[in-house]
Structures are given as structure tokens and as C-alpha cells.
Design a protein around this nucleic acid. Structure first.
Lengths: 242, 242
DNA sequence: CGTCGTGTTGAGCCGTATCAAATTCCGTGG
DNA sequence: CCACGGAATTTGATACGGCTCAACACGACG
């Protein structure tokens, strides 16, 4: 049973902008359905021309690219509220693959309706561009991490970013969030080897900064971690939710 | 003397999509002027709320972020046809700084008119989103480079990407393109130290792949370089020009 | 003619990768 | 219920790519 946009469990959260009644109504017509997939399911594939756009309602996943030598680079972890498939939607080919790491529930939009959205709902089109710009922003931060931070700093950075984001979604609890990924995932996201990632995680635990096991990230010293990570202070800006 | 969009020297190039007469007319009204800056001039500043959007008409520059420890990460080199300032334009704050490395000529658009564009010119709005998605695509490739490629591969990758892009703009000549950056710039773009960048450039020259000196990149074995770089085959897709 | 930015080169070290192997945890089939 | 195989985590040993430090050359510029 598909959730109607007006009853969207995500939208009331303070992370997202408010929508007016008519706006919600349009989104309901734009939305063609919902999709539920199991952990491990591929959702989008690099280089393909997917006919659909998705907004994540529940669950988590990851975006990645493969190199011709078989290496995998994870571009970002994917959380509720994230939009996926915009590249294929507008350019006709997607630059990354998307895979579920937990059971996921996704809103499905039809790419064919995208043009209709631009013509009839300039506010939504604006939001779409906003979402794309926001994504750019995060990718830029990731580049800075891979280019300039040490292994410790990268992991601290990832932990702080993920923790803040999930807390803003009310996912997890006081001092902890679920983090349903493997150490290999984190290694591939941060450009580190699996072994070194493991050893660095241990060091972070020994320093009493944070621990991550059994899919659960517990932060015990957020300030120290943020300091280590050199995170630029995050504005509590609201983002659009499509 | 400002160039009129209908006489834009960039638009006829095969890299860009065609515009109809009315579309050009609108762009001329959207364009509020031109800006010419000298090499070294800062154009946008990270964290600031710039009131303007730019399209590069001539010259080159670079986008970068600074970390709190003083490190600089270059996100991308900026070439004619590139759009800048979209993040500030839609989100209200820019995630990177932009600086000219040569004399540059820029089209200037007013951010206040952006909303007008979305309302009255859905085709342009669509192009804007397209441009943002394209940018995402490139940032994703950069992440893969920093995360998975060795120093040699990164430099080869950067050379191939830059060479192809500038050739598509008819900038440079047979087998060479201008590349008005310093080795420090390249190092900061690829997450390498200056010294190691220098030594790796030498190695690439010794292998007869390419040489870069006096602001001029000469490619002598593009295939070998592309092979080394593991570049995914670039579609000759056209891009929108704003 | 000093100073500064850029490029170049050598020496040595260290952070991270690679290799190898043991352990735990599951899911599956016998 | 247990044996098995595969994925994920852990740990130690070793190798090396890339970093840092240091010095020098060169040209532009005041």
C-alpha cells in the first residue's frame, strides 16, 4: 500500500522544507508508485539509462562506481530523503550504480513526467535543482576528504557526517545511529585499504572517540571527533524533499 | 562591449546544444553583463552568498575548497562553457571558491532572475539542472580518481580529461592544449604532494606519454595515457550552455 | 640585486598497502 | 543437530608509494 505524499513520514522532519497542500497534491500525481527491495538489490546501474527517479523513504544503500581494474569507489552512503537517478533523468545516463544495503522503500517517479514537472511546477523544478546543487556540495566535501585528510581524519569525518545526518532524521538514539555497512564499504568510500580501515577503527575506539560494531555506530566524544575531522560547521539548512 | 548571446563564440561549437531564436532572446535578457578579470582574481568565495551566476566565455580558472588546517583541495579546473555559482544561486551559499588563473571573460546572470527563469523558461531551467547533473558526474569521477588511482594514473587521467575537453572546444592545436596552471595546482587537484607530482610528471615525460611545460600540455601517446588512466569511454554527448 | 614564486632533485622516513592467516559468525545442506 | 563454506573482522609481518625536509636553479619583478 503506497503512502500518499501528504502522509509522508519523512516530510514533517525538521530537516526538510515544508510543502503546501497543492504542492503535495502535485507530488502525488508525479509519484507513480513505491518500490520495496531487499538488502543487496541493485537499483540503478552505472552507464544505464534508467527510466525512473527515486526518493528514499526508508532504509539505506550506497552509490558507487567501478573502475576497469575492478576497484570500487563508493561515492556516498544513501539515506532516507536522498534523491537518486537524476543524472539518468536529465542526461540520459547515470554516472553511478546504486545498491541497497538494507531493505529499502523508495518513492518512484517517472522520468517521462520530468519535463511536465519543469513546465507546470517551477517550484518543484527549482527544488530538483536545489537537490542537485546540494549533492554537488557533498561530493565536493568528499573530494576534499580523499585528497587532503589522513586515514584517521577521513574516518572521523565520515562518522561525524553520517551521525549528524541520521540524527537529523531521528534515526537511532542518543549518541548512536545504525550504520548497516561493512568495513569494506567504508574502506571503498574513503579510498583506504580494508586492513588499514580496520586498524584505524580500532585506534578510534581506543581513543574513546567512537565505536562501530554490529551495524551500530556509537559516538562517545563528538567534539573530539569533529575536531579531528576538521568538519566545516554544518548549517542547519533545510533541504527540499521530492 | 558585451557580446550578445546570438553572437556567442562558444555556442556554435559541437560540444554544445543548439538554441532556437527565442531561447537566445531570453538568454540575452537574463544576461546582465560581462565581467573581465585578470589572472589571480578571486571570483567566488566559499561560504559566501554570491548574488550572481557566471558562465565562462574565455580563459581558465579553478574551483577549490580550503580545510581548516590550511590545505587546499582543488575540485576542478574551470574552462569556457562552465557554469559557476549555482550552489549559491539556489542554496544561498557556495561550497567552493573560484579563482581565475588566466584573464577571464564571464557572462554574468543575476541570481534574482533565477526564479523568473524557472517560471518562464522551463527549457532553460531544465538545462540548468542538466548542467548541475553533469557537474555531479564529473565530481564523481574525481572521487574515483582520488580514492582508487595511483599518482601516475591520476595524472594521466587528468591529462586525458583536460585534453579532450579543450580539444572539444577547439582550444589548442593538434596534439597539444594550453594548460595555464602550476604544478602546485595539479598537486592540490589530485591530492598529491608537490614534490611527488613533479617526479611523476617527469616519469610520464620519460615514458614519452606527454610533456607539460610553460603552460602547454603536449600529448604524444594519447592511447597509452588513456589506457594508464583507465578512463571510461567518454560519450560525445552535447551539453547545455547557459 | 635581493626576494619571491616556480620548478627540480636527492635523501630518508612514515603512512598506508599488501600478504597471510586465524577467528567469528551465519546460512545452508546433510 | 552438526558439518561445511563463505563473508566479515582481526591481527601480525613486511614492502613500498608517496610525503617531508632540504637545497638549488631560474626568471620575474621591484
Amino acid at each position: 500500500m503506497a503512502i500518499r505524499c501528504r502522509n509522508c513520514p519523512l516530510r514533517p522532519k525538521p530537516l526538510f522544507q515544508d510543502f503546501s497542500g497543492p504542492e503535495l497534491q502535485f507530488m502525488e500525481s508525479f509519484k507513480v508508485g513505491e518500490m520495496v527491495v531487499d538488502a543487496g538489490t541493485p537499483i540503478l546501474s552505472e552507464g544505464s539509462n534508467a527510466p525512473q527517479l527515486y526518493t528514499v523513504l526508508e532504509g539505506m544503500g550506497l552509490r558507487y562506481k567501478m573502475l576497469s581494474n575492478g576497484d570500487r569507489q563508493i561515492l556516498s552512503f544513501v539515506f532516507p530523503g536522498d534523491l537518486a537517478g537524476l543524472q539518468a533523468g536529465v542526461m540520459g545516463v547515470n554516472g553511478y550504480s546504486l545498491e541497497a544495503t538494507t531493505k529499502m522503500r523508495l518513492c518512484v517517479f517517472n522520468r517521462r513526467d520530468l519535463w511536465n514537472l519543469f513546465r507546470n511546477q517551477p517550484e518543484r523544478a527549482y527544488d530538483l535543482t536545489w537537490a542537485a546543487a546540494l549533492e554537488q556540495h557533498f561530493l565536493g566535501e568528499t573530494i576534499a576528504s580523499l585528497g587532503q585528510r589522513t586515514a584517521m581524519e577521513r574516518i572521523a569525518w565520515a562518522m561525524v557526517k553520517v551521525y549528524r545526518r541520521l540524527q537529523a532524521l531521528d534515526i537511532g538514539g542518543k549518541g548512536w545511529v545504525p550504520l548497516p555497512y561493512t568495513q569494506r564499504d567504508l574502506a571503498d568510500a574513503l579510498g583506504l585499504s580494508l586492513v588499514h580501515t580496520n586498524k584505524t577503527l580500532r585506534k578510534i575506539a581506543e581513543h574513546q572517540y567512537a565505536t562501530w560494531s554490529e551495524g551500530r555506530l556509537s559516538i562517545s566524544n563528538l567534539d573530539a571527533l569533529a575536531d579531528l575531522a576538521m568538519v566545516d560547521l554544518e548549517e542547519g539548512t533545510k533541504r527540499p524533499l521530492l
